[in-house]
Simulated scan of single mutants.
Amino acid sequence: MSKTVIRNDWTREEIAEIYNSPVLDLIYRAATTHREYNDPQEVQVCTLLSVKTGGCPEDCGYCPQAARYHTNVKVHKLMPVNEVLDAARNAKDSGSTRFCMGAAWREVRDNRDFDNVLEMVKGVNSMGMEVCCTLGMLTEDQAQKLKDAGLYAYNHNLDTSEEHYDKVITTRTYDDRLDTIQHVRKSGIAVCSGGIIGLGETHIDRIGLLHTLATMPEHPESVPVNALVPVEGTPMEEQPRVSVWEMVRMIATARIIMPKAMVRLSAGRVRMSQEEQALCFMAGANSIFAGDKLLTTPNPEVDADKELFQTLNLRPRAAFKDGEAPVKIDQIPNTGILVD
C-alpha cells in the first residue's frame, strides 16, 4: 500500500471535513497516517527554558510576560551564557534531545544580548542536542546568523487564525509572523510553528490556523498544539478550560494533513491525566516538553513523564534522527527518562 501523499494544496473545506469527522474515526485515521511516517513508540522530548523573562512590550492577551499586565511574573534580564549551558546539560542528562530557549522580546535586536544568544546556541549545539530558539521577530540577516551559530529550529507560533488574530494581539500583524517564518525557512533553519486553542476562537478559526500551516510551501517540521493555561492578570484569565477532545481533534487533524511533522503536545498537558495524554499520542502527537515549567507556566515533572513513558512503552526520539546534521557516537543524548 502506498503512503499517504504529502500535500500543500489543502482547502479549508477538506480540512473542515477531516476536523469534523466522528472523533473515533478521526483518531483511527490519524493513528494510521502516523504509523506510515513515524515510529508510534517514539516521542521527541524537549526542554524549554526562559532565558529572558517578562517585560515584553507586546499585548498578547494570553501572555503573563507582557509588561502591561499585572501578573506574578518577575522580570529577569538575559541569563548568563554559562547558566544556560548548565541547564542544557541537565536537560540532556534527564533525557531531552532538543533544548529550546525563549526570550520575551518583540523582536531580535543586533546587540550584546543577541551576541550572547548566539554563544548559547553554539554551546548547546556542541552538546549534540537539537537547539531551538523563540526570540520574537527576525530579519533575514539575524536568521542567517542563528543558522551559522548552529541553530536547528526556530519557534514562531501563529497562535490562531488570521481572522481571529487581532482579537488576541494588536501590537503586530499576522503578516509579521509569516514574514519571520519565511526568513527562518530561507536560512535553512527548521520551522516550529503552531498555535493555541482556548483563546475565544471558533472551530472555524482552528481550521483556518491548520489551513495556513498545511498550505505553506513546506510544512513546519514541528507543530506545537497548546491549550491555553489562563493566568491571573491577563485579559484571558477567565477563559474556560479546553477539553481533551478539542486537543485530540487539533492533533489528529494536524497529523493527517501534515504527516511528517513533529506534532507537539505542549501547554496544558499538566492538566491532563495519563489516559488523556495517551489519547493525544494515539491521535498522532509525538513530541512533548519535559521539565516542571514552560517559560512561566506549569508543566508535568520529569518523574511523572518517566512513569507515563514506561506505562505507554514510549521512548525518546534521538536528536538529528533524520540525518539533518552529523552526530558523533559520544554525542548521542542520554535517554535516561526511560530508565529505572
Rank of each mutant, 00 (worst) to 15 (best):
I288R: 03
H219N: 13
F281A: 10
A252C: 02
A283M: 03
R206W: 09
D205S: 14
L213Y: 10
I256K: 08
G208V: 08
A254M: 12
V225A: 02
R255W: 10
P316C: 08
Q310I: 07
I196C: 05
M247A: 12
T311E: 13
R271T: 10
A227G: 05
Q277V: 00
E301H: 15
L265F: 13
E301L: 10
E237T: 11
A254Q: 11
V231N: 02
R241N: 11
W245E: 13
S187A: 15
P240K: 07
V229C: 06
S273I: 01
A290F: 13
F309Q: 07
R241D: 10
L209P: 11
P259N: 10
A304F: 12
A261R: 09
W245C: 09
D205L: 06
M216C: 06
H211Q: 14
Q239I: 13
E276F: 00
C280Y: 00
N286A: 11
V225M: 06
M247W: 04
M250L: 14
A304V: 11
H211S: 14
T311Y: 13
G188Y: 06
L210R: 09
K186H: 13
V263Q: 11
P220I: 05
V242K: 00
P220N: 06
K186V: 03
F289H: 04
A304M: 13
L279F: 10
P240A: 09
G233W: 00
V223C: 05
I256T: 07
H219S: 12
L199K: 03
G198I: 06
F281P: 01
T253L: 04
I251P: 03
S273C: 02
E221N: 13
L314R: 01
S222H: 14
R269W: 01
L314A: 03
A318V: 15
P300K: 11
S243Q: 06
P235H: 11
E301S: 08
M262R: 15
A290W: 14
R249E: 07
A190T: 07
Q310H: 13
F289A: 01
Q277T: 00
V244F: 04
D292L: 06
E238W: 13
L308G: 01
R264G: 04
N286M: 08
I189Q: 08
N286K: 09
A227D: 02
G233V: 00
L199C: 08
A227M: 15
Q277C: 00
I197Q: 02
E218Q: 14
M236R: 07
L199T: 04
